[in-house]
Design a protein around this nucleic acid. Structure first.
Lengths: 257, 257
DNA sequence: CTCATGAGAGAGCATTGCTCTCGCAAAGGA
DNA sequence: TCCTTTGCGAGAGCAATGCTCTCTCATGAG
């Protein structure tokens, strides 16, 4: 008999959860049934992701996915209890894909080229978003109304932020950050939140944390503006402008040119 | 007979367009029929805006609006040819409301307190958004898939930006901008876009234009992050953090503390 | 007074998310 | 090996949506 605390049960539950919510299998599942279930779950999310890419989240229809799989619509509910759960799986996948893209972009840079690493991260975010606008919109656009982000999305959601925080932290530790003066000192009431954010960039003082937030919100603010049409008829040579603004952010963080 | 170029026709067409798309009447309409039509159009958009506020854009249903008006659903189509057109009207209304809030916030500040004016604009945007998250999401979140912003939304969409540009322009003209050094010079390829953006902030050099874009994207990047849940469990004392970051943006623009 | 125009009512179509029941087949225990 | 539990696909069905079409009637212009 399995107790709920037994490693077996935990392992089984977590695998089921992964199959259900992530549409992924870790490796060979135990039984044949579980294997085909994982296969079909993955197929559903793949088709759904394709529909999402072409039609956007509001146009994602469970019935259309079922049709493409040659299933009847009600059968999909064996795999995802609701449309929102399918969307949640896509969201988690999306965060992981973006996080991986950011990790890869950072990984190929020389470790001590902090400006280069930051720029690589910025470009990775932008290019990932431009290649999959609807998926980006699902992650960083308006949240779907009924949707409550499960706690589990959080770990995936901050993968890119973790990379960013490491760059800042390492740059500061290496003494490579000499920010320009003239900026106001963070107020005392900011200390608490700075401490939370500092978990992502250990050892960094409050004013660098604040400036890091400026850069991070600036990056996603730009990408969202560009993708959601706010730059129409206003900014044409977008790659150039983006690049310059991100270099500017690096300089304002005190990174070397 | 009215030619299409006659002032009468143009006036009539533009009024019809306003009623159709803006849900507003300029003043007393000509005939009684037109007056009641304008009244009903306004009532539809009012109810729709209320539904939008509570349920979000995807939950906005033409039939529900019709039901609340005591009409049958098909009758709504006499006023808005499709759901998207109703949404367009709400978008334009939203841009105008936000623009007006920003204008009002700026108007009560001393003209030469540029830092104060910028902070007032920032707070106005954030507070407007926090008070109507769904409406903000409609403006700055993921665009609805089928939706193509008509040219007409543009004038409303940049009302807030116009205020912002004026602050920058006047601050620069007053010699009140002394930005910190150390930022990279804008590349030559940026000049074209800088010229376009400069129409909103006449007389300002390219590097100030670039920094102005940094601040503007930072403002909306923050507000979107805060509203769309990206700060959950990360930043708690949000008003404080927001205020400090916007002060920081002011300082980086070279505004006096 | 006549007649064209505008507008609401109603039925209807295709589509959606989701539920329920039914029946079959595979997995697992005795 | 047999029997039972479990999982899963099929199908019908419900309520709701956006949108179209036709019918009818009142209003307003000539």
């Amino acid at each position: 008999m399995l107790s709920h605390e037994s490693p077996e049960c935990q392992e089984r539950c977590s695998r089921i959860f992964l199959v259900l919510c992530y549409g992924e299998v870790m490796n060979a599942s135990r039984t044949a049934r579980e294997r085909v279930r994982a296969e079909l779950t993955r197929e559903i999310t793949d088709i759904a992701r394709r529909h999402l890419a072409t039609d956007g989240a509001p146009g994602l229809s469970l019935r259309a996915v079922a049709r493409e799989m040659g299933m009847v619509s009600s059968a999909i509910y064996r795999y995802f209890p609701s449309r929102d759960d399918l969307l949640t799986a896509l969201i988690i996948d999306g965060y992981n894909a973006l996080g991986e893209a950011v990790e890869d972009a950072d990984a190929v840079c020389p470790r001590d080229d902090f400006t280069g690493r930051w720029l690589a991260v910025c470009r990775a975010v932008r290019e990932w978003a431009l290649a999959r606008p609807h998926e980006y919109a699902l992650l960083y656009g308006s949240p779907v109304p009924g949707y409550q982000a499960p706690e589990d999305t959080v770990v995936a959601a901050i993968r890119d932020t973790v990379v960013y925080g490491r760059i800042i932290s390492e740059a500061y530790a290496a003494g490579a950050l000499t920010p320009p003066g003239g900026t106001p000192a963070p107020p005392a009431a900011f200390a608490g939140d700075a401490a939370i954010v500092r978990e992502l960039m250990p050892g960094v003082p409050d004013d660098v944390v604040a400036q890091a937030l400026v850069a991070w919100t600036g990056l996603f603010g730009w990408v969202s503006f560009e993708l959601f049409g706010q730059f129409n008829n206003a900014i044409l040579n977008r790659a150039t402008a983006f690049d310059h603004l991100m270099r500017r952010h690096a300089a304002l963080l005190g990174m070397p040119a």
